[in-house]
């Protein structure tokens, strides 16, 4: 059971700030596959550009930026938390 938290900037496509994905041990990529099934092509368009996470989207697994981990191949295990946040903040 992976918990995914969405930025409010995604509210208009997800309609929720949080969802649960039941996949067992998996990767960030398959979690996103599941989210696209759930929220549709518009969700995919907001997050991805040419198959890559957009420059201004940050994806965190338990608080760690996936750019510091294995990107979309980062393993995700049960009880992990994923958050999707805009990159341009802070400083």
């Amino acid at each position: 059971m992976v918990k995914v938290r969405f930025s409010s900037a995604l509210n208009s496509v997800t309609g929720t700030r949080e969802t649960i994905v039941e996949l067992g041990d998996t990767t960030v990529k398959s979690v996103f596959g599941e989210l696209v099934n759930k929220f549709g092509a518009e969700f995919e368009k907001r997050i991805f550009e040419n198959g890559e996470v957009r420059r201004f989207v940050n994806v965190y697994v338990n608080g760690d930026d996936i750019r510091h981990l294995d990107g979309l191949d980062t393993p995700v295990t049960d009880s992990d938390e994923i958050s999707i946040l805009p990159a341009v903040s802070g400083g």
């Binding site: 608080g63 930026d65 903040s89 400083g91």
Partner: peptide, 27 residues
Amino acid sequence: TYDDANRLASEVADMHPDWAFVNITVR
């Protein structure tokens, strides 16, 4: 690091739309 503090602040800011985080929501 700052990046951890910033990520946490971004999440908190996002949950409190009536707060103005100077370098986040009113950046």
